[in-house]
């Protein structure tokens, strides 16, 4: 790999741009393919980008390996609470670009969340700005309807691959009622994992974070959970 190509790859990564590295395996010749580029392998690169899976393409000149560099998965955590303090670094370690959303400035402090991006906006405003997509997980942890409900409504209007909401069965049932009053039906709100997390008997905030991270992973990888 040429240093110039590596630098461009690192620049694309920093700017959160999708890029494919095409490598001719016999010679080692390489080039970058960006979405929309006029490249002979543009269609194959688009398939690799969409599936987020590298692939090897046979060409007249020999095999070309297409390695996909999509921007990172994202997790938006609503509620700068104790569980979030465990979940945010866990998600970061798992490869997610994490944002904590909480308008209560006493909670959302850099001291409580070192190295994690914090937005002190209201959840509906924050989600409008963050534009969650099919590579985004959204977890609400405040169990305060004033904060969780607008976040969940925005989440349900998005393609987020995972939506989870902390709260007991009773809390969740009331939440569902409020969402139905707001016009969401079961085909929408059944996307919400509630009570949040896998049933592993989690008690402490860190254990609950593990159960959430496990459920998010299962949703991402298409495993039943």
């Amino acid at each position: 790999m040429k240093r110039k190509l590596l630098d461009q790859l690192l620049a694309d990564r920093a700017a959160q741009r999708t890029v494919v590295v095409a490598t001719h395996l016999a010679s080692g010749d390489q080039r970058l393919i960006h979405p929309g580029d006029n490249d002979p392998l543009a269609a194959e690169a688009a398939l690799a980008i969409q599936s987020d899976k590298p692939r090897t393409v046979e060409t007249a000149d020999g095999d070309v390996f297409l390695n996909v560099f999509n921007p990172p998965l994202r997790m938006i955590i609503v509620g700068a609470v104790h569980i979030a303090q465990a979940l945010a670094p866990m998600a970061a370690m798992t490869g997610y670009d994490v944002t904590i959303v909480d308008p209560r400035q006493a909670w959302a402090t850099p001291e409580r969340f070192p190295d994690i991006r914090i937005m002190d906006a209201w959840p509906d405003e924050a989600l409008a700005e963050l534009k969650p997509d099919h590579r985004t997980a959204i977890v609400t942890l405040t169990h305060d309807p004033k904060l969780d409900d607008p976040a969940l409504q925005a989440a349900l209007a998005s393609d987020a691959f995972y939506i989870g909401s902390l709260g007991s069965r009773g809390t969740h049932a009331k939440r569902i009622q409020r969402l139905e009053t707001a016009g969401f039906d079961e085909s929408n709100h059944s996307r919400i994992h509630g009570p949040v997390g896998l049933n592993i008997g989690a008690k402490s905030p860190a254990e609950i974070a593990v159960s959430i991270m496990g459920q998010v992973t299962a949703a991402l990888r298409g495993a039943a959970a």
């Binding site: 590596l6 790859l9 690192l10 990564r13 560099f69 999509n70 921007p71 990172p72 370690m93 490869g95």
Partner: peptide
């Protein structure tokens, strides 16, 4: 791209 991949490059 995962955090790990970024660190490697």
């Amino acid at each position: 791209m995962s955090t790990e991949t970024r660190d490697i490059l």
